[in-house]
Design a protein around this nucleic acid. Structure first.
Lengths: 207, 207, 207, 207
DNA sequence: GATGAATGAGCCTTCATTCAT
DNA sequence: AATGAATGAAGGCTCATTCAT
């Protein structure tokens, strides 16, 4: 069963069920800390049946990671050099925060991979991500030169967007524990907060 | 070896060597992804000897975590309600960034624990950390009321400090990969960047 | 599919294809070292389809073995008490060598079974084969008494014929490796050699 | 535990116990047909303890095979070009038969390896064994030229010695079944038989 | 007549832990 | 204070077999 394109409906369904379960487990415990038993149990399937659909534990993990970086890059791709600078950056912040809300497990899967030294996704980071960051940094630098936004290191600006938004996915448990149960959903406040601070950071007429 | 206070020098030394090695390993692979073999090898010790000093794998991990939150809270404790508001907050940012530079493994150990759902450190977060955040939030809120800093959600302000500074430890691999080898040390730029943005965020006379 | 007599042509064909593939695999790796996957792949068939034709892995093996001893005995059966003694024995040697050339896999299947302690074919050996050897030994002993061939232990004579001829099937790999690639077919030389030595062994007028 | 030279007595003992047990099992079922469970049980040890002494199933098998070819070649090495031709060859036959009697499992281990296509010992056969056979074939050819022994293909003569003697180890089960329980030890008769036939084969004054 | 789907049992190996020295 | 020796439990993966279609 190495077919890239599942044929029957049951195959499509089970492949998705497995990936869903694996995302649950890998995003929490990392590759080495996760077991096929956990994934199988979460997927409601026997362990050998898992391996009927994927060749190995590694193969499941690889499939999950393969789609990940692309998904991760996409919001940054949309940053439009021709658009309004501040609006563009704020929109990017919003998109990233939206992803943390909608795909927190993917964010944690990524965080786990990086924490472990990016053994699998490293090449893609040194390749595609680095290239994209350089492209967009040029755009941001131009915006600064044109006086559209306040001067700021474009690379670290991007890092700050990543860390601030992904924090609400990766450290979700901590955020909720600290906020307490009276504030069950941190995202509305987070969105307002990020809006405020990036507006201040980028406002061009400052000293 | 359940003694709280190691007696001989060699015991003290070995205890430290083990904790050092365990920090290396746990911070990279998480609790479940790490093995005693790895720790023993890193510590240059036999596996049974490890367990002569600590009762179990769990025990080593616990000792590491126990000291951790305290270390993590300390810079925030120092935030002085009587000091200059902006200077106090910027100093806190500096201290936290300094910790990311000097103790990146501790930061990753913490990140791993949170990613896994904070099974061990959860109570401390819901207890001490939450309480401290509430205290300091009151201080910050007062500063805002007094017009010393610009209005901002104090809790999310703290989250932003944590995420922005810890990012340089937890995602260090990614940061270095994206910056490339021409910028071998990201921290000086990071410090300047964080200084800039927090100055703008907190500047009181904005709209 | 427990029918002894396959009905349709396609059934007959597939049964043969499976036995052919199984012979390939079993003769090389023995019963326990062989897998249905290997056999199915060699047969160009799915594993469940294999088991549609044969009840189990064991069943395939049994069918192969059942026909085997009969095939193995047949050349000895032909040893004619009324024929010319030396010619009869030499003809038997020839027939056995011919079988090593034409059915090496069957020979190796047999060798594997014996090496493993003859768990399945044991009874047939203690029964039919033993009986046949005793019969023919009496014939050979008579020939010796009559001075037609030189005196020799008839049982060990038969063993020697078996070992010398089957060696060219069972140890084929070694024989070819030792002879090297300049002598691609060992059988012509083997035939001449066996002819020579058995002629000398049986020549009656020796001291 | 990859030390070539076991240090403690218990290590020496256990290493030997394991190799002994592994020889039992591998010689009967081949590499793939054997399980660590069988070996562990035979050795009276737990499976993990086996792997404390040897890195893997493969490693045990390798150690067994490594010593094997050397042991197998040694009797042929002793074939002395300066000795009495017929006596030398008969002595070689005796030595080989003696080995079949004393080390039948080693013989079967070798047979299994060859039957499976010599995947591990192949190189040694194409190397050392082939070279030795060529050397000794030259010696035998000289003996023939000098009229000391009857003309015969020297390579096939060696094959015949191997097959005739090893047969009493590899096919021991069959030999004993055919001879029945009245003749519990086939070796004395075998020795006499081989003596007789090789004497006749090599007698120089024949036509 | 054939195959996709599924699994209990087993296999090799690793792991945390224990015991004896 | 330290390590060689040992193991029950678990982990990833394979295998023969079954079931449904």
């Amino acid at each position: 069963m190495n077919n890239r394109q599942p044929k029957t409906r049951i195959q499509q369904k089970n492949t998705l069920v497995i990936l869903e379960a694996a995302l649950d487990v890998f995003s929490q415990f990392g590759f080495r800390g996760s077991t096929l038993d956990q994934i199988a149990k979460t997927a409601g399937m026997s362990k050998p049946n898992l391996l009927y659909y994927f060749a190995s534990k590694e193969a499941i993990h690889t499939v999950l990671l393969e789609g990940l970086l692309e998904t991760w890059l996409e919001p940054l791709h949309k940053l439009d050099a021709a658009g309004n600078p501040r609006a563009e950056i704020l929109a990017y912040v919003h998109r990233k925060l939206q992803m943390s809300r909608d795909f927190p497990r993917e964010s944690r899967l990524f965080a786990n991979e990086i924490l472990q030294g990016a053994p699998r996704i490293g090449p893609a980071i040194e390749g595609e991500l680095k290239k994209l960051v350089e492209e967009k940094s040029i755009v941001i630098d131009r915006w600064i030169t044109e006086g559209k936004i306040a001067p700021v290191d474009p690379r670290h600006l991007l890092f700050s967007i990543w860390s601030l938004t992904q924090h609400y996915a990766d450290f979700d448990v901590q955020v909720r524990m600290v906020l307490g149960e009276e504030r069950p959903d941190p995202f509305p406040d987070a969105e307002a907060f990020l809006d405020t601070i990036f507006t201040r950071i980028l406002a061009p007429d400052q000293k």
